[in-house]
Design a protein around this nucleic acid. Structure first.
Lengths: 216, 216
DNA sequence: CATATACGCTACGGCTCGTAGCGTAAAGAG
DNA sequence: CTCTTTACGCTACGAGCCGTAGCGTATATG
């Protein structure tokens, strides 16, 4: 789902759309976002920077929101969880990467502005979640399944409950990373990576009883 | 710090600024924000809705960001921690209120858009933090001090560490509330209020050793 | 070749921004 | 009461961006 979200890319008839233009536009969008911020991002700027006519932009994306969603989602595209041999290491790698992406100013400005718009647009919220948040959760579940195969983790007693637990915890992580970076202006360092990883591992490995947390 | 952030309000010379206009403008800003969203918020709309000339807006606030910061901060103004007799109840009340405020669509759209702009503006970040986040933390510290007076909590061994712990935990809460509402589209229910409260209480009462968390 | 689509370019109406100018309203100083 | 000072409402303005339309050209298929 890199670009051209609407309809078939080209039904093999007439001049095909330039893939280079797609890439140039997405790159230009991210660059303009990092340089000018959301408020300073204009379709004219993006078009000029990409070396493309403004009309070409509108031919592909109906609105600025759609364009930015694709531009940011493009960053999260090549995802895979490497097998580092232990659940701890695998999960930590995912969190590390997620935090790194959320630490980029361009990602921050884009996501927050999109969330702000998403307040009034449920479909936009859904697109953001599907393109960016869900894949990260899937990575964690993947690493978890692998740990179960290794015997490092007992098999799930309740599959649905386990999924929900990952959802909850991951929301905590993502939210905290954003908030930490944006409100306090501090980046997410190694200490926090460990903290988040631990937060993820505690319920997964059935250690949540060790916490005084009480969830009805 | 309700309005007119720049300079003295009126050096008792000439016609004084209308306090009613201030209130009308802030109210109109919040209303327009809730109705039209950040993208649809224009100075003209706010002025018209407030029954005020556009020039009056610019006389008080240099930019839209400043205006919205004040409009939202105004929501968090009348803060006080009521003594409910137990630390658990006091803290829970603070979290409850904070979550409720963050659950309002107008607050969400405003804060997120402000954070997005804050990505490029450290001063804006600072203003947001001082006006909105810090007071909430202060409330928690207040309730904590009261609990110590009651003997419910032992006195601090390390004052600075205790402050930092509140910072960290509260960032987690605030970030999670935002994320939960905006990404997953779910509100923060009673279960989460309890979860957050527990998260706050655990380190405060020295129970953090019970968690498997390891913070270097 | 004809056909069909994409592209770049130019131009347009509409909207918003932030400012300037002007006459009027509301306070204090003499 | 008069003078001064500041706030207010109103109008108008240049600038910038939006999103669209029209047109000629470029690049694919048959």
């Amino acid at each position: 789902m890199a670009a051209a979200p609407t309809g078939p890319p080209s039904p093999a008839k007439g001049r095909p759309r330039s893939a280079a233009a797609d890439r140039a536009i997405l790159d230009a969008t991210r660059a303009a976002l990092a340089e000018l911020g959301w408020g300073g991002l204009t379709m004219g700027h993006v078009a000029e920077r990409a070396g493309v006519a403004k009309t070409t932009l509108y031919r592909r994306w109906p609105s600025r929101n759609e364009l930015v969603v694709d531009a940011v989602a493009d960053l999260f595209e090549d995802l895979e969880i490497v097998d580092l041999g232990s659940l701890q290491a695998d999960i930590e790698a995912v969190v590390q990467r997620f935090a790194a992406l959320l630490s980029r100013p361009e990602t921050q400005a884009a996501l927050l502005a999109l969330f702000a718009e998403g307040t009034r647009d449920p479909l936009l919220r859904r697109r953001i979640r599907e393109a960016i948040v869900d894949p990260q959760k899937e990575l964690v579940r993947c690493g978890r399944a692998r740990a179960q195969e290794r015997g490092e983790l007992p098999p799930d007693a309740d599959e649905a409950a386990a999924r929900e637990e990952v959802d909850l915890i991951f929301d905590t992580i993502a939210g905290t990373v954003e908030h930490r970076i944006l409100v306090s202006g501090e980046s997410v360092g190694e200490a926090w990576i460990h903290r988040f990883t631990t937060l993820l591992l505690a319920p997964l490995s059935g250690l949540s009883a060790g916490r005084p947390a009480q969830r009805p």
